[in-house]
């Protein structure tokens, strides 16, 4: 059985005005659909808001240093929404884009993990409660894919963070838009890399 898709997200790291980036404004800019109902939550631990769009597989988290769109629906392009947002904020400083994908399985599926990683994840030592293995794979001048597989006593999790660093680039906003627009490609990339590095079959 393949590892189950759990959630994905697209994160834009930059400088954002949290009082402007709210559902009515996102609706005006056609980033959220018209007449969507959105539950608003303020973060008590740091400045920022979370917006849960009713009936749609997307949750927005807005803070002064990042905007994140998260979804639990496989195939949903969080990056498409972040790209739309950045297109209407061409002067906003953006430093990086992270396209993130997370998969999970019960520990008894650990047999599907290729050796030698499986052996590492099963290694018992003292009071160790979790074990992980991490690879970083360079894609191009600005993009690195970080792969992590982690096991505890109940689950095995695979996560892939495709990070594009656009800070200092000639046109950081355009490159950030392009990186966010690659979300679906990066999802497919995470499936390939999970298989190449850990022998995983991941839910498509």
């Amino acid at each position: 059985m393949p590892f189950a898709f759990d959630k994905s997200s697209c994160v834009a790291v930059g400088t954002f005005n949290i009082y402007i980036l709210n559902p009515p404004w996102l609706g005006k800019k056609d980033i959220l659909p018209k007449n969507a109902t959105v539950r608003g939550l303020a973060n008590l631990l740091q400045p920022g808001f979370r917006y849960e769009v009713e009936g749609m597989p997307q949750t927005w988290t807005v803070s002064p240093t990042r905007v994140e769109v998260e979804s639990r629906s496989v195939g949903f392009s969080c990056g498409n929404l972040v790209a739309k947002l950045l297109r209407v904020l061409p002067e906003t400083p953006v430093f990086g884009i992270g396209n993130n994908f997370h998969f999970t399985a019960k520990l008894d599926q650990i047999d599907e993990v290729a050796d030698p990683v499986r052996g590492l994840l099963l290694a018992q030592s003292g009071s160790t409660v979790a074990r992980a293995c991490h690879f970083s794979v360079k894609r191009d001048d600005i993009t690195i894919a970080h792969l992590q597989i982690r096991a505890d006593d109940e689950h095995v999790e695979f996560s892939c963070n495709v990070h594009s660093n656009v800070e200092g680039r000639p046109d950081p906003n355009a490159e950030a838009v392009a990186a966010a627009d690659r979300f679906i490609d990066d999802h497919l990339l995470s499936l390939d890399l999970g298989n190449q590095f850990f022998g995983l079959r991941l839910e498509r």
Partner: peptide
């Protein structure tokens, strides 16, 4: 408990 519910928005309400 780290979030405060602030209410419901409706895009396009204006």
């Amino acid at each position: 408990g780290s979030e405060l519910y602030v209410g419901r928005y409706s895009t396009g309400a204006e």
